[in-house]
Design a protein around this nucleic acid. Sequence first.
DNA 1: CATTATTATGCAACAAGGTGCATAATGTGC
DNA 2: GCACATTATGCACCTTGTTGCATAATAATG
Lengths: 185, 185
Amino acid sequence: MALRYALLCALHEQPATGYELTQRFKTRLANVWNASHQQVYRELAKLQQEKLLLVEAIEQPNKPDKKRYHTTLAGRSALEHWLGQIQPRPATRDPLLVKLFAGDLLDLAVLHNELEALKKESLAQLEYYRVIEQTYFPNPGTLSRHYRLQYLALRRGILSAEANLNWLAEAEVTLQNLPNVPGRP
Amino acid sequence: MALRYALLCALHEQPATGYELTQRFKTRLANVWNASHQQVYRELAKLQQEKLLLVEAIEQPNKPDKKRYHTTLAGRSALEHWLGQIQPRPATRDPLLVKLFAGDLLDLAVLHNELEALKKESLAQLEYYRVIEQTYFPNPGTLSRHYRLQYLALRRGILSAEANLNWLAEAEVTLQNLPNVPGRP
DNA sequence: CATTATTATGCAACAAGGTGCATAATGTGC
DNA sequence: GCACATTATGCACCTTGTTGCATAATAATG
């Protein structure tokens, strides 16, 4: 149920097309919410039908119109209602951690590769977030309420990526010192 | 697709009933994988039908039989095949972070409550993990491969909870110094 | 002794998310 | 000039997860 509110939020901030929203989910909102373009278009159509959004057709020379979505008054109050309730925490479901419970069936070389992939990903994320931090939030204390809240979301991404990397460092040490004999107790 | 492998993993470690598996998801596997009892029973039935699991009927005086599930050879090789592939990272979808993009529509008092709830939850988790750490893993270097890998999963829970709390501390400072005027730029 | 919690199992309907495929235009590189 | 990437939109089907409901026994609590 929350995808619709992520869309309403994003469109309240700045009207956009389905394509642009998909891009935002891949970049600025990457550590906040994810959705495929198919999911975005489907939900936008539904929200429009429910009159929580309305469409502005953008003419393009020699191309079909672009559809830019805006929130309606009903859309904003639906969003406000949702914002007013405490939302349940997302459930954790991490296949990498599941693997750690496979005991003797787990191949350490594969695990190592998977940890390396996560490390690479986390480092890339962290670097990306740091660039945004220094470019857009060099002095967060001077920002408006609006941007200070968004900065908090960015900080969350940074702290999560750092926590990942700290854990990965521990994991690497563990793997290096691991007796390759299974042996239960 | 990963629920089935979480179940196969758990049952490879220790045969169990649907009920017991549900309990494990709520406790020992809380930071690893989540599933409701309905989902667990449904998937167990499916896995049994596909002959990846088999059932042992446990007689109980004056009660219907308990059904304890075991992995089959086919089950173990299906699990091994899954373990051999690098699994994609779970997508992040956090309604709390979505709210930070709602700008002027967001009520700070509600946000504060939500942060407090997360703090309480994270503290409780951390305390729980720490007890397990000190009870079951007082000297991780001496443990078998099997338990050292499980210890890694626990460490992940601990580092995540700590990262949450660090972020919450930052968030509280931000909220306290926030100009309550919206004002975009 | 009635009520509630815990153990133990499941079905049915629905919502949310993922996968595959399709189309159409422009721009880019070889 | 042809293949591929990017911008831009969507449908249909399938899997996964959630919600509501149901049953039945024992244990604990007042």
